[in-house]
Structure formats: C-alpha cells, structure tokens
C-alpha cells in the first residue's frame, strides 16, 4: 500500500512538533521541580518534656530559647512542689 503524501507533508511534522513540545515541557518542569522543590516536611511543634525527679510526674510544653536537656525549670511539680527537670527536647513533623 502506498503511503499517502499527506502523511509525510502534514501529519508527521505536526505529530513530531507536538511530541517535542510536550517532552520539552515535561523535562523542564520536572527538572525545576527536582532542583527547586523544598522539603515536603513541615514543622508542627517543638516540645520539651519535663519530669519531676522525685515522683516521676511528666509534663510536655512548648520549647523556649534557652531550654536544654538537664535544665532545672522554673515550673514546679503539682504533686510535691519539686522543680521539674527537662529530660527531652524534640519536634513533631508531618508530611505537608
């Protein structure tokens, strides 16, 4: 079967052009996404775990600059009035 002239002169260049543009667009957008994307993790909260050295009472509160593990906090234990000690500092994350 003879291939139609129109296939060569019209259809193939059109298909090639459309495919080229689509591939270019996909490749460039994917590259830029890879290079510029920020991490998909966002911070929810930074917390501090306090514990009473006498009775073991545990409390969690927000982190404040100046907190460190081992610091004797101003906060008192509701059970025996001892000063609470920071035993852990961490952050909770979730996927954006």
């Amino acid at each position: 079967m003879l291939i139609s002239v129109d296939l060569y002169t019209t259809l193939i260049p059109v298909i090639v052009t459309v495919l080229t543009v689509a591939v270019l667009f996909y490749a460039v957008s994917r590259d830029l996404r890879n290079v510029l994307a920020v991490s998909g993790v966002r911070r929810i909260s930074e917390y501090v775990t306090l514990r009473c050295p006498t009775c073991g009472y545990v409390k969690v509160r927000e982190f404040k600059v100046g907190d460190y593990v081992g610091k004797v906090d101003d906060e008192k234990c509701p059970n025996d009035g001892s000063s609470l000690v920071i035993i852990g500092i961490g952050k909770e994350q979730a996927n954006a």
């Binding site: 911070r43 930074e46 775990t49 852990g88 500092i89 961490g90 952050k91 909770e92 994350q93």
Partner: peptide, 8 residues
C-alpha cells in the same frame, strides 16, 4: 536538624 520525636 532538631531531634525528631522518632529519634527521641
């Protein structure tokens, strides 16, 4: 980075 809960 800041210690995560998992590591804690």
């Amino acid at each position: 980075n800041a210690m995560s809960k998992t590591i804690d």
